[in-house]
């Protein structure tokens, strides 16, 4: 029982991380048809930004309490700015050339980790999280690390905020309409490219926040973290249906849990394979993913 509880929390925590990456990835693809291979790099930017600030480089930021919160805000802000720059400077000039666009995001996805390791080294750096979050709590005989429920809680808050944004605001309305038919949105007199930038900013913020929290989850940051998480986030997005937020949430949980349980109860590493098998099986039954629509 204790093992099941621990695996469940760990799987859900991992699922929360996947969701923070996949939500933006899915919105960006749904609206813009852009598969953003640089999305993992945005997570890394957030992770390193938070790490850098919490390590005492940013006045007021630190490893405890409000100081750590400030570090997370800083990391998220840096990731958001990076995402906006990516959209404006790399994606936008290439809108009429989808192939070059993909290559450009792949390039950025490779360049950012290389840049990070050039500056701070290729090795993992210990992540300075608050003491309060480094402990565990006892549940049904299991010692569950506290950062798991924190991650799950943050992902739920992000999900709720995104749903409110999409459902209750005019910008959200434009995004939902754009996912269905971009050209018609412009034919109503709306500059859909502003929604593009907005969706990149939101997706970048969520991924960067995932980076900050991923530091807590893994206990360290390294340049390749974002890229390896991105692979599973792609699985989540395809499983959940491109452009579907609810689909991404459900698929994140499924992928995180399947991965953890399969890795534990079979050979380690098989869980990662199991996730891909899950994806293939689902696509055979429901080619458009779990929902195939946004909301």
């Amino acid at each position: 029982m204790a093992t099941v509880v621990l695996l469940t929390f760990t799987g859900l925590g991992l699922g929360a991380l996947y969701f923070l990456i996949a939500s933006g990835l899915s919105l960006i693809f749904g609206l813009m048809d852009v598969l953003n291979f640089a999305h993992g790099a945005l997570l890394s930017v957030g992770a390193y930004g938070t790490w850098w600030a919490a390590s005492g480089h940013l006045p007021g930021a630190g490893t405890e309490g409000a100081g750590f919160a400030l570090a997370v805000v800083f990391g998220t802000a840096v990731g958001t700015i990076a995402a906006v720059l990516l959209e404006v400077a790399v994606i936008r000039p290439l809108y009429t050339r989808p192939r070059e666009q993909i290559l450009a995001t792949v390039g950025v996805g490779l360049a950012v980790p290389a840049l990070l390791s050039a500056i701070w080294g290729a090795d993992a750096r210990p992540f300075p999280g608050p003491k309060a979050l480094s402990g565990t709590f006892a549940l049904l005989g299991a010692e569950v690390p506290l950062n798991r429920p924190v991650l799950i809680g943050v992902a739920l808050v992000v999900l709720a905020a995104l749903k409110l944004f999409l459902g209750r605001t005019r910008h959200g309305l434009v995004v939902r309409a754009g996912v269905e038919d971009r050209a018609m949105v412009t034919a109503l007199g709306i500059d859909v490219r502003r929604a593009f930038t907005l969706v990149f900013a939101i997706g970048g913020a969520a991924a960067a926040l995932g980076g900050a929290l991923g530091g807590l989850y893994f206990g360290s940051v390294d340049p390749g973290q974002g890229t390896s998480l991105l692979i599973f986030a792609f699985v989540v997005v395809v499983t959940g249906g491109m452009g579907s937020l609810t689909g991404a949430a459900v698929a994140s949980v499924a992928v995180g849990l399947v991965q953890q349980f399969a890795n534990y109860y079979t050979t380690a590493g098989l869980g990662d394979v199991a996730v891909v098998v899950l994806l293939a099986a689902l696509l055979l039954v429901r080619p458009r993913g779990l929902t195939g629509r946004l909301a």
């Binding site: 269905e180 412009t186 500059d191």
Partner: peptide, 26 residues
């Protein structure tokens, strides 16, 4: 297109261009 439309054009396209997942009010 969006700048031109904002100068005062209403367009009902051949396939109606209705957003299926949005409500009528939306």
């Amino acid at each position: 297109t969006h700048a031109l439309v904002r100068r005062g054009i209403g367009y009902a396209p051949e396939d109606r261009g209705v957003f299926a997942a949005l409500s009528v009010a939306e």
